[in-house]
Write a protein that binds this DNA or RNA. Structure first.
Length: 454
RNA sequence: GUGAAUGUAGUUCAGUUGGUUAGAACGUUGGAUUGUGGUUCCAAAGGUCGCCGGUUCGAGUCCGGUCUUUCACCCCA
């Protein structure tokens, strides 16, 4: 059916059941954020393009959704750019706004813009959709929600610790087994330095990020193709083959980076974080993984990634420290650290594992049959009393056949039906039917309320 | 952005080497002595076969393009 309406690729509608389950994820995450003292903020779906461009690297710029200028957008187009087919220049001429790509950069803008109104260190959370013009795939959408918590204006590693605690608690409450991977940008920098190729940091991280996926030989091959010398690669080997406990790994790294200051810093910070971790006893395993290299180029300190241990899926939560994100917007010296829960992927994981709790507390408990006329008014009164007692109920809007009304209750999985027609009304009573076992009882309104009070 | 697969009623799918009015199941709607659902029986509605173009006497079926969905790469939540 070609005429059937549709939605843009990579976007989704959510049916009631899905929406309820998504809310369960959001409220779970939100309640943990609040428990640790994070405050909510919201920012607009669109930002000025100048705020977004250049913050996510060249790849990220290509994935930004741009909003066409309103009115006659051809006004500012210079014909030369058109003739040259210079998409980049044309783009900036016809579009000045874009949909946000994540919540972190808009947050940085927010902090700089409102710096005089905020109390630092500022802890905020934000749960809003973001948009990426990516090609959709499994677990990858063009519109998806991020649930971010960030602390800005504090360099303490206690913040990193707190974020790890939050991750632990969120996934604990959701009943998911996960692994937290931790790395440090400085360790990666030190690695590049060790190889004598500090300028190849990006190539290096991109390549070793794939270690899990394509294996060591292919990674080495890729490094070679990027023009990294065999000698340099050889110096990298002990790190790529790093094994054992976190402390073992740190020991090897400490030796390796003895003469590299950034490396020593990195080792020291990771060591300190792990020490803090011992004193709070979280359930989730935290693993130092040198192959963890998050793509975003603003991370400068600890980087964090969470993977499901039960379902094959990209990372479901990520984050890290960025020393100078606000610097781009003219406020330097503001260190921040944050994490982002990928609600949509968490949904997919919970769905695959069938881990959603059966929660129908808030669903309609009772359907009141509508017989029309005075009977409908009588039912209306009962409904009002039920609602005042906190029992969710609804009246069938039309005086349709009883059969139809019963079928409606059945399809909606409403557990009880109240049948109150002329005979019940004259007695001041009602018939309560349990749809699960089919039993019925004749009750007064008072008896009904006390039955549902518990 | 690169490479590949896919697309037929609301949904899941049939549809023979191209050949009359394109089928099933489930779902939907109505009915089976007009106050009783989930089971059963009967009936009906619902498709310009993703879209555009081409080959052919004839296309759901073959070819090209386009869009959608899915997968891998890139990147990422």
């Amino acid at each position: 059916m070609a005429q059937k309406p549709s939605i843009p690729k990579g976007t989704r509608d959510f049916m009631p059941e899905e929406a309820i389950r998504r809310n369960y994820i959001f409220t779970t995450i939100q309640s943990v954020f609040e428990k640790y003292g994070y405050q909510p903020i919201e920012t607009p779906a669109m930002e000025n393009l100048s705020t977004l461009l250049g913050k996510y690297g060249e790849e990220g710029d290509k994935l930004l959704f741009k909003i066409l200028n309103s009115g006659d957008f051809t006004q500012k187009v210079d014909s030369q750019a058109w003739e040259d087919k210079d998409a980049l220049r044309l783009g900036t001429q016809v579009s000045e706004k874009g949909l946000r790509y994540d919540l972190t950069v808009p947050f940085a803008r927010f902090v700089v813009q409102h710096q005089n109104e905020l109390v630092f260190p500022f802890k905020r959370f934000q749960m809003q959709p973001v948009w990426r013009a990516d090609r959709p795939q499994k677990g990858r959408y063009r519109e998806f929600y991020q649930c971010d918590a960030d602390v800005i204006g504090s360099q303490s590693l206690l913040n990193e610790l707190e974020l790890l605690q939050i991750i632990d608690e969120v996934f604990g409450r959701l009943g998911l087994k996960v692994l937290i991977k931790v790395n440090h940008r400085k360790l990666l920098s030190a690695l590049a330095e060790l190889m004598g190729a500090p300028d190849k940091l990006i190539d290096l991280t991109v390549a070793i990020d794939k270690l899990d996926k394509i294996g060591l030989p292919s990674v080495l091959e890729e490094l070679r193709s990027k023009g990294i010398t065999d000698e340099a690669i050889a110096s990298l080997l002990p790190v790529l083959e790093l094994k054992g406990s976190n402390t073992d790994k740190l020991k090897v790294l400490a030796d390796l980076f003895e003469s590299i200051p950034v490396g020593r810093d990195g080792v020291e910070e990771v060591r300190e974080l792990l020490r803090y971790l011992e004193s709070v006893a979280i359930q989730t395993e935290v693993e130092l993984d040198l192959s963890l290299a998050r793509g975003l180029n603003y991370y400068t300190g600890i980087i964090i990634e969470v993977k499901s241990l039960e379902v094959e899926m990209g990372s479901i939560t990520g984050g890290g420290r960025y020393d100078d994100l606000t610097g781009i917007f003219g406020l330097s010296g503001m260190s921040g650290v944050g994490i982002s829960f990928g609600a949509d992927r968490i949904y997919d994981v919970l769905l695959q594992l069938n881990r959603f709790p059966a929660q129908h507390l808030h669903r309609t408990q009772i359907l009141l049959v509508n017989f029309g006329g005075d009977d409908a008014l009588y039912a209306l009164g009962i409904a009002q009393e039920l609602r005042e007692s906190g029992v969710p109920c609804e009246i069938y809007p039309d005086a349709a056949k009883l059969k139809k009304q019963m079928a409606y209750a059945d399809k909606r999985s409403i557990p009880y039906v109240i049948i109150a027609g002329e005979s019940e009304r004259k007695e001041g009573k009602l018939t309560l039917k349990n749809l699960h076992d089919g039993s019925q009882q004749l009750l007064s309104v008072g008896e009904l309320l006390s039955q549902f009070q518990a």
